[in-house]
């Protein structure tokens, strides 16, 4: 494609995946304890989408990548300090909760509006990327609704590969049941792709990309408008950590042979 793609990556921030999460209920409904104190990262699957977007843009001259994020501004700024070093993009920031308890529909409307407001965005070249679901929050519904609002009906979820064919069409691999991929041919943009892990490793930190990105990121953050989520669509009756504690029988004194015998018997039960 001579003019390249306009790739919009939707990516929220989430607590660093190794953090211990505990729900609390406040006046605004459920939230995570110390949510603003937990270290945050760009949502891992959405981050893969960003790297795939940058890779695609690099190989299709004339392409441009935007990162649209609905997150608390201060936390997003901190995450940008890491992510901005990875690949070139322009940030579109919406100031609002990055909570998993937000209604996916509301988030989708806010994101779609932000995308529609991007100056110079060419719908005929548009690819909307994101994670197939948040790797931390896990809703798996937002991106589809963003696409729907934007009128895009070529949508793919759990994408591990996007290959550009010689005629400009796409060959897309989506994760489906049974550890296999569904293979689709798509005529080209506009399309929505919710990425799983993809195939690219995390790019190294590149200081000059960071410096370049940051010139536009800081004004974007400073000018971030409130996302205006009304909330209250879901009535939460109870939010809790599932009780998962089991009485573990620790067996220390058996020989490997005896253990093997027990395991085999158990498997065959």
């Amino acid at each position: 494609m001579s003019n390249g793609y306009h790739i919009v990556v939707c990516a929220g921030i989430v607590p660093d995946p190794l953090q211990t999460l505990e729900p609390v209920t406040g006046p605004q409904g459920p939230a995570l304890r110390n949510e603003m104190m937990l270290p945050a990262v760009l949502d891992p699957w959405a981050a893969h989408a960003l790297y795939e977007a940058a890779h695609l843009a690099r190989n299709a001259p004339g392409s441009k990548v935007w990162l649209v994020s609905l997150s608390p501004k201060a936390k997003l700024q901190q995450v940008m300090m890491t992510i901005a070093q990875k690949v070139p993009f322009e940030l579109v920031a919406l100031d609002g909760p990055a909570s998993g308890f937000t209604d996916a529909g509301e988030t989708a409307v806010a994101l779609a509006r932000a995308i529609q407001a991007i100056p110079g965005l060419d719908r005929s070249r548009l690819l909307v990327f994101g994670g197939w679901e948040s790797a931390s929050r896990g809703a798996g519904a937002t991106l589809q609704m963003v696409g729907e609002i934007l009128g895009i009906t070529d949508q793919f979820q759990g994408v591990d590969a996007l290959e550009i064919q010689s005629d400009g069409s796409f060959r897309i691999l989506e994760r489906i049941e049974g550890g296999v991929h569904q293979v689709s041919a798509c005529a080209g943009p506009p399309a929505v792709l919710g990425w799983a892990t993809g195939t690219l490793p995390e790019p190294p930190n590149q200081p000059q990309i960071g410096m370049q990105n940051m010139r536009a990121i800081m004004p974007a953050l400073q000018g971030a408008q409130p996302a205006g989520l009304a909330g209250g669509k879901i009535e939460f009756l109870e939010v809790r950590i599932p009780s998962v504690r089991r009485e573990t029988q620790v067996i220390k004194d058996l020989s490997p042979e005896e253990i093997a015998k027990e395991i085999v018997e158990w498997i065959k039960e």
């Binding site: 308890f101 896990g138 879901i234 939010v239």
Partner: peptide, 12 residues
């Protein structure tokens, strides 16, 4: 919610 780490009882 949060990838099987938190569960909620809810309605709409």
């Amino acid at each position: 919610y949060y990838r099987q780490r938190i569960e909620a009882q809810q309605t709409r």
